[in-house]
Design a protein around this nucleic acid. Sequence first.
DNA 1: CTGAAAGCGCTTACAG
DNA 2: CTGAAAGCGCTTACAG
Lengths: 350, 350
Amino acid sequence: MKRISSNDIARLAGVSRSTVSRVINGYSNVPEETYNRVMQIVREQHYYPQLSGRQLSGKGSNTLGLFWIGKPNLSQALFSSNMFMIVIDAAAQRNYLTLADIVPNLSEERYANQVRRVFSEGRIDAGIFIGANNAEPLMEELPDNGYIVGIHDYYRENDPQPLRLSVNYDRSSGEQIIDYLYALGHRKIAILSGDLTHQSCLDRHESFLRGMTKHHLPLRNQWMAYGGYTEEPAYLGARQMLSACMDDLPTAICANNDSAAMGVYQACGELGLRIPEDISVFGTDDGPIAATASPPMSTFVIDTRKLFFSLVNRVIDTLEGKENVPRTEFIQGTLLPRASSAPPREHRNP
Amino acid sequence: MKRISSNDIARLAGVSRSTVSRVINGYSNVPEETYNRVMQIVREQHYYPQLSGRQLSGKGSNTLGLFWIGKPNLSQALFSSNMFMIVIDAAAQRNYLTLADIVPNLSEERYANQVRRVFSEGRIDAGIFIGANNAEPLMEELPDNGYIVGIHDYYRENDPQPLRLSVNYDRSSGEQIIDYLYALGHRKIAILSGDLTHQSCLDRHESFLRGMTKHHLPLRNQWMAYGGYTEEPAYLGARQMLSACMDDLPTAICANNDSAAMGVYQACGELGLRIPEDISVFGTDDGPIAATASPPMSTFVIDTRKLFFSLVNRVIDTLEGKENVPRTEFIQGTLLPRASSAPPREHRNP
DNA sequence: CTGAAAGCGCTTACAG
DNA sequence: CTGAAAGCGCTTACAG
């Protein structure tokens, strides 16, 4: 497979390689007649300059890295897969390709090196990170070495590093959910939190607490538990929490996200608790499983597409030298009650 | 961001660039002492050779292209997202990175060029295609130009082109499903077919027909319809088919895949048909929505992971010069009845 | 407006 | 065992 080179095009068009290059790169100092002659041959031959040559003479790769931090497991994959599609799509709309990489964790040196390598080899112009926790040293190192990173769900106050961008989730989701449940008549509300080293889990947790406090609702230890952010640990957390307080059950339970809420569904099913008759359940995210869950899940809608478009666009803006690009953005969401939430038993009409 | 080069490493180690290169590439003619000295500096400095330099001197990119042919829409995305993860994972296990690209269709020249470009620029060593139909000219052109392609769900008898590999779905799924429904007592079975330009849709369709014929079941036009392979067209197809024969309904309906079966669920819901009391429904694939559907969906399990690992591994084998790599593989699946199928009314105990 | 030449960072025959 | 040199395919000052 002998590839065609700029030399071949130059020969066919009767010009020098320099001119071919000028045409390809759309420089202004080429007469229209020459431009057309060269372009016609370029198109006929399906000629696209080798990236390696371009890069070696100083051009970028026009590629974004997409680093998925975590095991490629299914429950996450369900939600994540959309994220992949969306990032690829967002990048494509700015004429960037996406190099995807799954990295089990960043604390092991070999995996951190896997990421460093992709940057160092010059494969990408910037990297998007999904699943990095908020204290990840690599998220310091990379921008400090001059690499642009865009981090999903990562926050630091007044970040001085202009090469580190991020996108964050609505910080009022918990409060809005509690407000709603309170209005329905709920007073005994349980909270199943996620991994608090992730910014959104922390934000949601704090937001739930603010909501509870605002309405003077009791924050009881036995109604607060850890549920991770996938179905399995949430199921275990919910099951343990609920079975430990069967004599004084909460009337509603708020999970860190939809997958976790599915774990709650499962735990409730096993304990014979009907949703929403015996207990209301809330997720957060409005991921692909919420609407088709049985019963349909009350949740808080986050527009994942908007979220990643914000991140990708700001990363590319930075890459292309735009000034004063906002370091982060909080994507506002909206409450979406469905059948999994209802007034608690004592408030219902007989 | 000044990157470190092999020159820097050479200087620090007191050797020439040639030697650094030999060490990096693990050549045998380097004394252990030299090897260790150079490697230590390489590791200290987190040095990874620039890909563009390597490629220009003849090395590959160690990258697989992943082309998703189709709109990045959600219903497909649900199933596809896992495919992305799996391909990336399979490639990673062979030390390849994955460059992902979404291509709306291949019949428009500009989109075909988008694919040609990725190959021509030398970004990838081979391409994996998901969603290409069985008559796609680009699937001729690329291997004829020396590029290796691995195509999901694509088949041609005795393909002479060694650079074109594929992976296919179990061809007996339909027959197995009909066998099962027949054994339950069903005699009036409807079939909702997919887009027959896709190999698996055609195979499944034919397999259903074989099953029907084998058991001498009637193939009535009003019980056969087109349902595409996503939820929306399947819903429309099922709704139209069912509402046109309300006086003589089938007792079971087989969809081309799980998403399509979800469309059938929706149509049944709107027409007041209970699953499985009034009608049994079968999907195919055991994708992420089947188990959590309500009622849980009877389907035919295909191990998507196994499927893509087969494809990716054979593509990389071919790339690395292995001989007699099988051109295609049919991945066997297994029947998985769940609550959406049951004996038809007249066969049930009162 | 355009060509000849330098240079980007590698690898690899080649020579020793 | 190892270094100097050529060459891969581009782009871009530079000179004209």
